[in-house]
């Protein structure tokens, strides 16, 4: 009951989804859409559970007066404000859109742009071209970066009498040839891994997602 039924459910749903894919019958299509809808209904509950865990974690921080516990209130305030406006009035409400535009989007972009500084220091360590592989990485990254910025072509065309717009052309060639071929290799490898792992899950060989215990 505790392990066998979930494994059986996983097997049934997995096999049904695979078989439906190969059947053009209208009933199959209906069943396919219905199962997809089921998964879309079930998934938000997992998010609610994640939120419950987040609330629990921050509540414990506040109760125990852990380090920086005051900031846990900020998490609650942010979440409550969004939920209080968003759930009754919907995401297209003016106030919700305002919060998204002037608070969430700027912070999101700033957080990611912060990485530009850390990448700069990380690349200094990574790009010390001591081996052939490190040199290739360095040269490819430099060409892509210079070719991406319009100033790269501008400087090249000013100082070099040959190869008009060479940086952007070289960047394009690298992206479309060696880069794409290695990506294809990685995608093929990952895809084969996904398929084998999916088969293991459906057949109940891989059952770590059930967790420990009975």
């Amino acid at each position: 009951m505790r392990r066998q039924v979930p494994l059986a459910l996983c097997f049934v749903f997995g096999v049904v989804m695979v078989l439906i894919e190969f059947s053009p019958h209208p009933y199959s299509k209906f069943l396919y859409n219905e199962v997809i809808n089921w998964s879309l209904i079930i998934t938000p509950f997992a998010l609610v559970l994640g939120v419950a865990t987040l609330v629990q974690t921050h509540w414990i921080r506040i109760r125990r007066r852990a380090e920086y516990w005051q900031y846990s209130f900020v998490v609650f305030i942010g979440m409550i404000v969004m939920v209080t406006i968003g759930i009754p009035f919907g995401p297209s409400h003016k106030a919700f859109a305002w919060l998204f535009k002037y608070i969430q989007t700027p912070m999101d972009a700033t957080m990611f742009s912060l990485l530009a500084f850390f990448i700069a220091s990380a690349s200094y360590r990574a790009f010390r071209a001591r081996t052939l592989e490190a040199t290739l990485l360095l040269v490819a990254a430099l060409i892509v970066m210079i070719g991406n910025a319009p100033i790269g072509d501008l400087i090249w065309n000013k100082i070099m009498p040959f190869g008009e717009n060479l940086p952007s052309t070289a960047r394009q060639w690298i992206l479309e040839n060696p880069n794409l071929s290695s990506r294809r290799g990685v995608i093929l490898g990952v895809s084969l891994g996904v398929i084998s792992q999916s088969i293991r899950i459906i057949l109940g060989i891989e059952r770590s997602y059930l967790g420990g215990g009975d």
Binding site: L40, I41, T43, P44, L47, V48, V51, L54, Y71, S72, V74, V75, F76, I77, G78, M79, I80, V81, M82, V83, G86, I87, G90, P91, F96, L99, F100, I103, Q104, M107, D108, M111
Partner: peptide, 19 residues
């Protein structure tokens, strides 16, 4: 912390209204 709170709230609202 505000970013975490706002993002989680946004996720909740979207999953309720679009799911």
């Amino acid at each position: 912390h505000l970013f975490v709170g706002i993002s989680v709230g946004y996720g909740i609202v979207l999953s309720i209204h679009q799911g």
